[in-house]
């Protein structure tokens, strides 16, 4: 059962790209891969002020992830709490998961050739902490939402 979601309060977010860097630094990723992304639409006049829409995107941790069944080595795993992660030991870097994912979320780590993607910072969650992007968001715009089962 999917338990976690990341929510962006777009009224607070200032598109500072902090979250992207907090994520990369926490995962010690080299130049190249990003596991989350802030994107802005072009400026548009709204009520006399040029404004933009800001979105935060990362892995959706799908209920029925297309990336999991295609993995030939069972490296792509869905946890009990819905987090979809890559077992780095098993990953062979074939990137079948990327092709299967509708949003092409998994990316290749140029350091070791293996696939990486958002794992909801499950090591931090398991230690009672919040994901890196949320913990350190410059404006506290990112929030961890714990979904309740009805």
């Amino acid at each position: 059962m999917k338990k976690y979601m990341i929510h962006l309060n777009t009224r607070r977010c200032i598109a500072c790209h902090g979250c992207e860097v907090h994520c990369k630094a926490n995962k010690e990723l080299p130049v190249g891969p990003f596991l989350c992304e802030i994107s802005c639409t072009p400026l548009k006049m709204v009520g006399g002020v040029p404004r933009m829409e800001i979105t935060f995107s990362t892995c959706r941790h799908c209920e029925d992830p297309l990336c999991v069944p295609v993995c030939p080595t069972n490296a792509m795993v869905q946890r009990e709490d819905g987090i979809v992660y890559i077992d780095q030991e098993k990953c062979i870097g074939c990137m079948a998961c990327k092709k299967a994912c509708p949003w092409e979320i998994p990316v290749q780590n140029p350091d070791n050739g293996k696939a990486v993607k958002c794992d909801m910072c499950m090591d931090r969650l398991d230690a009672g902490l919040k994901p890196a992007c949320i913990s350190k968001c410059t404006t506290h715009a990112l929030k961890l939402v714990e979904l309740q089962s009805l």
Partner: peptide, 8 residues
């Protein structure tokens, strides 16, 4: 906890 990209 808040920090910016530069801080990290």
């Amino acid at each position: 906890g808040a920090l910016c990209a530069k801080g990290t």
